[in-house]
Amino acid sequence: MKFDDKVPIYIQIKNYLYHQILTGTLQPGDKLPSVRQLALDVTANVNTVQRALTEMLSEDIIESQRGKGNFVTTDVDNIKQLRNKLVNEQLTLVYQELHALNLSNDEILSEMKSYMESRDEQHE
């Protein structure tokens, strides 16, 4: 995994796992790889991976079962909340940036719309 050296590694590991959960690579109830395996997968150190997992545990995105390892939560609401949170973060970014360019809400909407149409055309 390629890291951005400016962003704390544990945050990037969290994002990497969030991504896997939201795209379904890791399904609710799935077992996460061991800490050492995760460290190898992403090329980070065990302590950093542990820190990411600890935060995800306190966010109730994953659950730890004594002696068995960590599992993706089966509480679908939690995953939904996570999805909302991440979508919200990205939207906030776009909104703030475009607002800073003096676009009104309507203009933002129409710009987004035409942007998406042109993206779709490119992909066809």
């Binding site: 890291f3 590694i9 460290a39 190898l40 992403v42």
Partner: peptide
């Protein structure tokens, strides 16, 4: 780098010297 991550005993400490840090930055505490 992978063998370091794989075989370093968990409670042990490792000091890696380098004058070029980028290649190991992600594994450092």
């Amino acid at each position: 780098i992978n063998s370091i991550l794989k075989w370093k005993p968990e409670e042990s400490t490792m000091i890696i010297s380098d004058h070029y840090v980028t290649e190991i930055a992600s594994i450092l505490d």
